[in-house]
């Protein structure tokens, strides 16, 4: 079957200049890669003959020690609770913050710019580093972990939500203002109905993110299952490690699945 009309356009490289440019970018990328590999002593062979050898460990992981599961489950539940609390609090705080960050509601740059700036900074700080700092202040336990999750997810959620607010239909807002509604009524009647489904959906998404993040907070003493994982790995108790990994895996998959199904129905 020949179709003259859909002759493939050969989008291949045409001009000499582009050829040179692409080649040089390629050389730089690969050269830098070799450099970084040497710098970070990354040799794939080490996977096999490194310290303990990956294959060695992989063999030791099986069979998992199922008796250990009864120790792991309470910790897993604590981890989930941390994520639930942090997501809820972050969601509540994010409401006023994202309203203030929305340029269509607060056109004054002196209001929305500083708020956005703070949120941007919060998003760049790794949650586990926040956890370390809070552990330093509040001592070990779930509280510093929850605080770290709140702050990190607040930055994320506020950004997602304010971008949604900025994309809403402004016409109803004008109508509510024109009929004498005050700012809170404008938000309640014209903004909220338009962003609510998205807001809930983002809340669920941030919950997924928080579940993953909370799994490792225990590495630094901020509560949850990470403590056990860190312990068992350093004791080289690999069947227990495998139990933890399987439990983490299954719970993350289930939570993501449920959350995704809910989000699909929302929008």
């Amino acid at each position: 079957m020949m179709r003259k009309t859909s002759q493939p356009t050969l989008q291949g490289i045409t001009s000499n200049q582009t050829k040179i440019r692409i080649t040089s970018i390629f050389v730089i990328v690969v050269g830098f890669y070799l450099f970084t590999s040497i710098k970070t002593e990354s040799s794939l062979l080490d996977l096999w003959n490194g310290k303990n050898g990956f294959i060695n460990i992989a063999q030791n992981l099986f069979p998992p020690n199922w008796n250990y599961a009864s120790t792991v489950l309470p910790q897993l539940i604590e981890t989930l609770h941390m994520a639930i609390i942090a997501t809820t609090i972050a969601a509540i705080i994010s409401i006023p913050i994202s309203l203030l960050s929305a340029a269509n509601l607060f056109p004054n740059a002196f209001i929305h710019q500083p708020v956005r700036f703070i949120m941007n900074v919060l998003r760049t700080i790794p949650d586990i580093l926040l956890a370390l700092i809070f552990v330093g202040i509040f001592g070990v336990g779930v509280f510093p972990g929850i605080m770290a999750l709140i702050i990190f997810s607040l930055g994320l959620l506020a950004k997602l939500v304010y971008e949604t607010i900025e994309s809403i239909d402004m016409n109803p807002i004008e109508a509510i203002r024109a009929s004498g509604g005050n700012t809170l009524q404008v938000i309640g009647y014209a903004v909220l109905p338009q962003v609510l489904p998205q807001f809930v959906s983002f809340g669920l998404y941030v919950f997924e993110v928080n579940v993953r993040a909370s799994l490792v907070l225990g590495f630094v003493g901020a509560g949850g299952i990470g403590l056990l994982l860190n312990q068992q790995v350093s004791w080289a108790n690999y069947p227990n490690v495998m139990t933890i990994i399987i439990i983490i895996f299954v719970s993350v998959v289930i939570i993501d699945y449920i959350s995704n199904k809910l989000r699909e129905r929302l929008i």
């Binding site: 710098k39 002593e41 996977l47 303990n52 050898g53 990956f54």
Partner: peptide
């Protein structure tokens, strides 16, 4: 964490 156990504590 797993890879640290496997190849030792280093950037790799």
């Amino acid at each position: 964490l797993m890879f640290v156990a496997a190849v030792g504590p280093r950037p790799f």
